[in-house]
Amino acid sequence: MEHNILEIDHLHVVFPSSKGETSPVNDVSLRVPAGKTVGIVGESGCGKSMTARAVMGLIHAPGRITEGEIRLCGRDLRKLSEKEYCSLRGSEVSMIFQEPMTSLNPVMKAGHQVEEVLRLHTDIPESELKQRVIDIFRAVGITEPEKRYNCYPHELSGGLRQRVIIAMAMICRPRLMIADEPTTALDVTVQAQILRLMKDLVSDDTGLLVISHDLGVIAKLCDYVYVMYAGRIVEESDIFTLFDDPQHPYTKGLMDAVGSLRRDAEVLSTIPGVVPSLAHLPAGCSFCLRCENGSDRCEKELPGLIQTGPGHKVRCHLMKEAGQ
């Protein structure tokens, strides 16, 4: 039976500011089934990283979750005390952060930083800690792991640092791993290696949530995709359907922008306009201002997520529900 590692229902994250509240995450619901890799794709500022932070319980003040539920293997994370959350982070849910260059503590040896996770969450005796770290270094493809154990972050290349971070995230075998733009800061050749490594991270009883603006990364890694725009999920579907038959005008725009690179087009395809400021979202569909087919209704009335096919949902007034 398929069960979900992560379930998010109607999540709202709000940032109060002097100009009123903004909602970087607005009514987001998603699932990460066991053994699957799920992606969130969208432009920067669309709320995908914030969704990940909400799961980790690491939203920077003054932002906070106002509504919704986050369940990890059935456990309601919003009801946890800070102490319980700390024992969860790193052991049951872990995150691979965006910037390998700055995500490691510059004054601590790489090996010790990974060891720290074991110290915090396990009772492994002191004498075995180092061997464990070296084993995991080997597993994530770090060459000469004994030597790297004693290296400081500045002595490692970007790819190696990202491997150290991945080692850190997986050493306690968490049920859920979240990778926030895991390859964005890396060279293309290194990107491919890291993606291959990440593909092997998922086992039958764990899940991986990948966050990226890069459809290529999503296509290589994910089984299921959520497309986010201005804090809302605008389309969700399994990976093949999404790439074969994108429905939401925003998703289509994204695909065309990538596609035009491949087709050797004279003029690169773009989505006209810019992402609207979260403080000034229209009452209706947040994409209507940039949509070619936007109507009065789009501007005034928020479309719901409409099921257009099996496992395929789209938030758009132009869609017709499957079977209608």
Binding site: G90, F97, L104, H121, A169
Partner: peptide
């Protein structure tokens, strides 16, 4: 953030 993500208080 990384340290918080590890479970440090």
């Amino acid at each position: 953030d990384t340290a918080r993500g590890k479970g440090r208080t």
